[in-house]
């Protein structure tokens, strides 16, 4: 029998880790392998999945986005505020009363706009992605507080709530939305020119520029899409809670980066996949769920998650050296 090569092991390490965790937790807790619990895990990861798809594209280009949590919070708050209170145009003596569809559209536009600003800052003003998105994190959080006056916007109605708390064919709508986004962006990353360009920019920016690719435009596109996906995550979360919390999404950027790295995407860019990120989200979701079921203290949960992320990055680095 042929031994498993190092390359094969590296390729399937995330899947292997997930299988090991699922088997171990099935023995450790009777509740783990039940339909409601598995559905709950998928529902819990749907928000992180939307964030992480965008984060994967950004990290594939060699960048990073620390503002996804803030964009999530602001998009959700804007949509909720417009839906609940409308937009008064005092100079015209009228008010725009938004429908749920209008509020969703506005929330996504906010996400796309903030993502575009990130991209412009990084490409036109040559800001390091870490600094540009850290600035946007602060801007986004501040704007959310200004928009909401620091209070949650609640009671948004069942029509809006459908995207976060509704069901279709017995499956939560949030899972359908995130699954559709996975399929769409998997297709874009593998089968479209933009996808190939993203890998090319991440593999070697200089080589991509020599090949006459418009590197700046590709980066702006990627950050804009990342913003839009963070907005979708914000809308799902807001709809699920029936409230836009001004502090929503605090620290979500870390979970998102962790999912991408655990899923095998290299922090130096050019290597990784959307499907790997799905595995990374599942690993984090299963880990969170398992630690709760096993009644591990929330403080220890953070420590354990930290070690898992460190292990994933260390394996990525060791893998790169071997290559």
């Amino acid at each position: 029998m042929k031994p498993i090569s190092k390359e094969t092991f590296t390729r399937f390490q995330s899947l292997l880790a997930l299988v090991v965790m699922v088997v171990a937790l099935s023995f450790a807790s009777e509740q783990f392998l039940t339909v409601p619990n598995l559905r709950n895990i998928l529902l819990q990861i749907s928000v992180n999945l939307c964030l992480s798809i965008g984060m994967t594209l950004i990290i594939l280009t060699g960048g990073i986005n620390l503002s996804v949590g803030a964009i999530l919070g602001l998009s959700g708050a804007v949509a909720a505020g417009l839906l609940k209170n409308g937009l008064a145009l005092k100079f015209a003596g009228v008010q725009m009363q938004f429908t749920p569809l209008g509020a969703i559209f506005a929330g996504i536009c906010v996400g796309l706009a903030l993502g575009w600003f990130n991209g412009m800052g990084i490409t036109r003003f040559k800001l390091p992605p870490f600094v540009a998105t850290l600035g946007m994190l602060s801007i986004g959080r501040g704007l959310t507080m200004l928009w909401t006056n620091g209070f949650p916007v609640t009671a948004l109605g069942s029509k809006f709530g459908f995207i976060g708390a509704g069901f279709w064919l017995g499956v939560p709508t949030a899972i359908w939305i995130s699954a559709a986004l996975v399929a769409l962006f998997y297709f874009i990353s593998i089968h479209t020119t933009l996808g190939r360009y993203i890998y090319a920019v991440g593999g070697s920016e200089k080589a991509a520029a020599f090949a006459r690719l418009n590197v700046n435009n590709i980066k702006v596109w990627v950050y804009t899409l990342g913003g839009g996906l963070a907005a979708v995550a914000g809308l799902i979360l807001t709809a699920r809670l029936d409230a836009a919390d001004p502090k929503a999404g605090l620290g979500y950027e870390l979970d998102s980066i962790a999912a991408v790295v655990i899923g095998g995407t290299s922090l130096s860019g050019g290597r990784g996949s959307i499907l790997g990120t799905v595995l990374g989200c599942l690993i984090i979701g299963v880990l969170n769920n398992g630690l709760v079921l096993m009644e591990v203290s929330p403080f220890w949960q953070q420590v354990i998650k930290g070690f898992v992320i460190l292990a994933a990055v260390a394996m990525d680095k060791l893998g790169s050296k071997t290559e």
Binding site: N85, K90, V94, Q95, Q97, F98, T99, G102
Partner: peptide, 17 residues
């Protein structure tokens, strides 16, 4: 078919609220 918003006078909006 799927309007994003409706325009109403400010006074009516205040009364409705």
């Amino acid at each position: 078919l799927f309007p994003l918003f409706h325009i109403v006078p400010l006074e009516r909006a205040a009364k409705e609220k």
